[in-house]
Amino acid sequence: MTNHTTEHSTRGAYVNEGEEFNRDTTYIEDRIVADPTASTDGEHQLWAAEAGTYRLVAARACPWANRALIVRRLLGLEDAISVGLPGPTHDARSWTFDLDEGGKDPVLGIERIQDAYFKRFPDYPRGITVPAIVHVESGAVVTNNFPQITEDFAKEWGAFHREGAPDLWPAEQEDEMRQVMKRIYTEINNGVYRCGFAGSQEAYNKAYQRLWDALDWVEERLATRRYLMGDHITEADVRLFTTLVRFDPVYFGHFKCNRQPLTTMPNLWGYARDLFQTPGFGDTVDFQQIKEHYYIVHEDINPTGIVPAGPQLENWLSDHGREALGGSPFNTDAGATAPGPVREGEYVTPGHNPLYPA
C-alpha cells in the first residue's frame, strides 16, 4: 500500500495511511518567567513576565487554546495579557483573524498568525499552531508550547494574578497531578485524535480501546471525588474539560469515539456540567465554532463540509449533583474566589453557548 501522508489542522497532527496517528510535539519552547535572571531553566530562551508586553492568540475552536483561555480567566490575567481570537476555520497556511474588523487582529495588525511566526523565524518549518504568545512590540511569536504556557501562567505570572486567584498547581499534589495529566493527555486529549485520524482499521481499534480504557478510569476516579485531584479545581481539570466539552458535539461522531455519548456516563457528565457552570470554564466555550472547525477543516474526514445541527446544548445547564461529594470549585479556606464577569469584547457569540442565549 502506498504510504500517503495527509496534513491536518491540529497542532501538526498527521496520519499515514495504514498506520497509527502521530502528533508533532516539537514546539517553540521559549518561556515567559517572573525573573529570567533567577531562572534555573538554562535550556530555553527566557522572556520577562511584564504586563502589556504580550498577546495570547487562542482560537476558541481549538481545545489546546481553550485551556489557555480558561487559565487566563481563572487567574485574572486579562489586564496583563491581551487576547486575539482567530476564527474557527483556516486553510493550509494558518489560522486567520477573519472575525475582526477588516480581517486583521486589532493589536498585532496581521491577518494570519503565521505572520507572527515568520516575523521571528522566516523559514519556520513546523505547524502554525494556537495557542501562541506574541511579543506585541516586535510582532514576533514567543512560544506555542501549550502545556508550558498555562503552567507558567500559574507559576510565573503571580504578580499579575487577580485577588482570589485559585492555586491551580498545589505543591502537595503536583507529583500525582503530573501523572494524572500525562495519562489524560496521551490517552484522552490525544486519544480522540488517535481514533479520528487512524490510518487503518487495526490502528483505529487499538486507539478506540485505549481511549475508552482511560475514560472508564476517569469515570471511576470521579465517583468518590468532586474533581480530579480532590475537593477543588486544578490544572488537571482544565486539561480534561476541553476534551469533554467537545466530546458529544464532535468526537463522538466525527472522530468515531462512539461507544457511548458523554451524557450516559454519570460521573463524567456530572463533572463536565459542574465545570461548565463554574465561571471561567463554560463562559469560554463556543460550541458553534468548535463544530465548524472540525467539520469544515477536516475535509478528508468530512468531505461535504456539512456542520451538524445538533446536539441540543441546554442540558449543560441542568443540575449536576456533584455538591454531594463535598468540596467546591474554589478553595475558599485559602482565599480563592470565582473570577468576575467576562470582560467586554470577550463574550462568546450569543446562541453559540447556552450561557449566552441568542
Rank of each mutant, 00 (worst) to 15 (best):
134 V>Q: 06
273 R>V: 08
300 D>G: 00
323 E>T: 07
50 E>L: 10
280 G>Q: 03
125 P>K: 10
113 I>N: 01
135 H>A: 07
278 T>Y: 04
352 H>M: 07
348 V>C: 11
32 I>V: 01
281 F>E: 05
40 T>E: 15
295 Y>D: 03
319 D>H: 14
246 R>L: 03
225 R>W: 04
118 F>E: 14
348 V>E: 08
354 P>C: 13
157 W>H: 13
3 N>E: 15
54 Y>I: 06
11 R>T: 02
66 N>I: 00
86 P>L: 05
320 H>M: 00
92 A>G: 04
277 Q>Y: 05
211 L>T: 00
263 T>I: 11
124 Y>G: 01
142 V>T: 11
276 F>C: 05
326 G>S: 12
157 W>P: 09
308 P>K: 13
31 R>C: 08
126 R>V: 01
322 R>V: 09
224 T>G: 10
22 N>I: 07
357 P>Q: 06
308 P>M: 13
301 I>H: 06
18 G>E: 14
290 I>D: 02
295 Y>T: 00
142 V>M: 06
68 A>Y: 13
77 L>Y: 10
126 R>C: 04
204 Y>N: 09
84 G>T: 04
249 P>G: 06
16 N>M: 10
178 R>K: 10
277 Q>C: 02
152 D>S: 05
354 P>N: 08
33 V>H: 06
301 I>C: 05
72 R>M: 04
28 I>E: 05
84 G>N: 00
27 Y>F: 13
294 Y>D: 01
136 V>F: 09
46 L>S: 02
16 N>H: 11
23 R>M: 05
325 L>S: 14
192 V>C: 01
69 L>N: 07
18 G>F: 14
154 A>P: 08
100 D>Q: 09
54 Y>C: 00
155 K>H: 10
144 N>W: 03
358 A>V: 07
70 I>L: 09
287 F>M: 10
333 D>H: 12
4 H>E: 10
21 F>N: 02
253 G>C: 00
338 A>S: 15
278 T>C: 12
139 G>R: 09
173 Q>G: 09
51 A>S: 15
253 G>P: 00
193 Y>P: 01
30 D>S: 14
276 F>Q: 03
353 N>W: 05
203 A>E: 01
98 D>H: 12
155 K>I: 06
316 W>G: 02
25 T>R: 12
221 R>T: 09
8 H>I: 00
203 A>F: 11
215 L>Y: 03
178 R>G: 13
256 K>W: 11
229 M>L: 14
244 L>F: 01
296 I>P: 00
198 A>I: 01
201 Q>I: 02
251 Y>Q: 02
74 L>P: 08
212 W>V: 00
234 T>V: 14
293 H>Y: 03
18 G>C: 14
122 P>W: 06
92 A>N: 11
115 D>K: 15
77 L>W: 07
236 A>Y: 03
83 V>T: 15
16 N>F: 08
254 H>S: 02
38 A>C: 05
175 D>F: 08
179 Q>A: 14
178 R>N: 13
3 N>L: 09
130 V>C: 02
59 A>F: 01
345 G>H: 07
72 R>L: 14
28 I>Y: 04
233 I>A: 08
152 D>W: 08
297 V>I: 04
1 M>T: 10
260 Q>A: 07
143 T>E: 03
124 Y>V: 02
78 E>G: 11
355 L>Q: 15
201 Q>L: 13
